[in-house]
Each structure stands twice: as structure tokens, then as C-alpha cells.
Amino acid sequence: MVTVKELSKEEYLLEGHAACAGCGPAISIRVLFKALGNKVFLVVPACCTTVIQGPYPYTSFNVPLLNILFESTAAAASGIVAALRQRNIKDITVVGWAGDGGTVDIGIQALSGAAERETDFIYICYDNEAYGNTGMQRSGATPFGAWTTTTPSGKRERKKDMPLIMAAHRIPYVATACPSYPIDFVNKLRKAKEIKGTKYIHILAPCPTGWRYDTSKTVELGRLAVQTGLWALYEIENGKFKLNAPSDRLIDKAKRKSVKEYFALQGRFRSLTEKDIERIQKWVDDDWENYRRLAACSASDATPYGKI
């Protein structure tokens, strides 16, 4: 068990980068470097992280990083893994770091292929629930009722459940995290680093510009998303589903906060009606019933996704 004070003081994301004030993904990148150090090779498609680096010929990332096309994060990472193996370099962790558009919509075929080939790398999707760097367009990860520039009256479809899609590939490690719980994220990254095969981590990273809230509330909103049950922190290790603290206490419905608290802080949910909120609350409860079943199933011998 690590604590915040045990994390390294070394910074590999340099100050003066181009992220907006109060950027959730920027916190996640810092925590990533705290967990893995500089022995990483990042593969980044078109997403906010390309912008955070700053204008050419400068970059604020003090680690090897490859900027690649939108759809080919996992394919390029597979190439890097093969090249490192050919040169017999063993201490470098290859990390695919993509936004939700580059994972859920555009990059899903390359990611699915890499997972099927059992490429040895960590894929991290930081999810700000829209295409952030082009000015907030709707993506497959945008939740029901959220405003984006292409859904001005709120999206009418539900969000894809990407972590469970990846779990269905029967990869050895799938986890969800949130920058509001940095220690949980560090533990998951260090665990993923030790496992051989494709590892997938999905982070909910609040975005003040797109979600329309005050910049100081980024961490608070991430925490609220977890406490209301809209975002569950769990890991699926070799098919065994396990809820992590603090989500493991929330199986009981009475312990979860009402989703209204989360929506009230954000401008993007302003068009939600009472009826919509009731529907979303019901979906959340259904999801948690599903999590409860998965956890109970994993506690016994039968695993929900079969033995790997």
C-alpha cells in the first residue's frame, strides 16, 4: 500500500504545458509518471495530450513519446513493442495513451486487434466524454443527456461500456480509475506493469472546459462521479471481477449519493428533465446490480468471462 508522500518528487511532465486550467487529464498524466517513472514509451494519437505537449519544436513531456494518427495508437504501440523486443530492451513499458474518441470510436479496431494478438503493453483511455481538443463534439463515450456542440439539446443515446468490451477480449487485466483517487490509480498501474499481455485502464478525467463547471471542482467532480455510482472503480484480473475502495462499499443503494448532485455542478447537463434523471438513476442501479452479480460470480469458482 503506497501513500501520497511515498510517491517520487521527480516530474516528467514539465511545467508550463498547454493544458487548460484545472485539466483532469493533466493530473492523470502526472500520476502516470509518478507510478511508472521515466522508463515508459508513450504512444499518443490525436487527442488533448498532443495539445498539452505545446507547439513544435518544444514539448513538455520529458519521456520518449510518439505522436501517431488517430486510429492507430494500438497498432503503433504493437510496432514499438516488437522493435524493443528485437533490440532486446526489456525495462521499458509501452503505454498507449488515448482519449475517449481515439479509443471508443476511432481506435477501437486497432485496440481490438492488439488485444487479440496479446501485445504486451498498457493501453490507457482517459475519458473526458467528448472530443475535447476540437471543441467538444459528441463521441461514443458521451453520456446520456450531456450537451456537446453537436448535441446542443443533450445526447439521447447512452455511453458505451468500454471496459467491459475490453474484458470480453479476455485480456489479463482491465481496470477503471479516476484522478481523484491517485493512489488507486498508482496501484493499478504498478500491477498492470508486472502483468504480461494487453492491459487496459479506463480513466474518467473531468474536463472543466467541456463539462462547463468551475476549474477548481475537477477533483471534486471525479469524486462525486464515484460516490454517486455513475463511475465504478473496479478491476478484472484474469476474468475475476473485483470492486476497489471506495466503490466496494457502494453496492448497497442507500450508500450511493443521488446522481442529481453530480449533474447539478455541471453546465452540460442543464437540459436534463426530472424524468431523464429518474431514467439515469434507474440505469445506474441496474449497472450496480450487474456489478454485484459479477463480483459474487467471481468470488465463486465460475468466472464471468471464462478461465484464461
Binding site: 514539465l14 505545446g54 519544436p57 514539448t59 513538455s60
Partner: peptide, 16 residues
């Protein structure tokens, strides 16, 4: 194209 790691790649962001 190769970028060089620099502190303050966007300038002194304190002015924001």
C-alpha cells in the same frame, strides 16, 4: 520532426 523537452513550452503560463 523531433521536439525538445522544455519547461514552459507554452511560455509563462502564470499570465493566464
Amino acid at each position: 520532426a523531433l521536439s525538445i523537452p522544455t519547461a514552459g513550452s507554452m511560455g509563462k503560463t502564470g499570465s493566464w
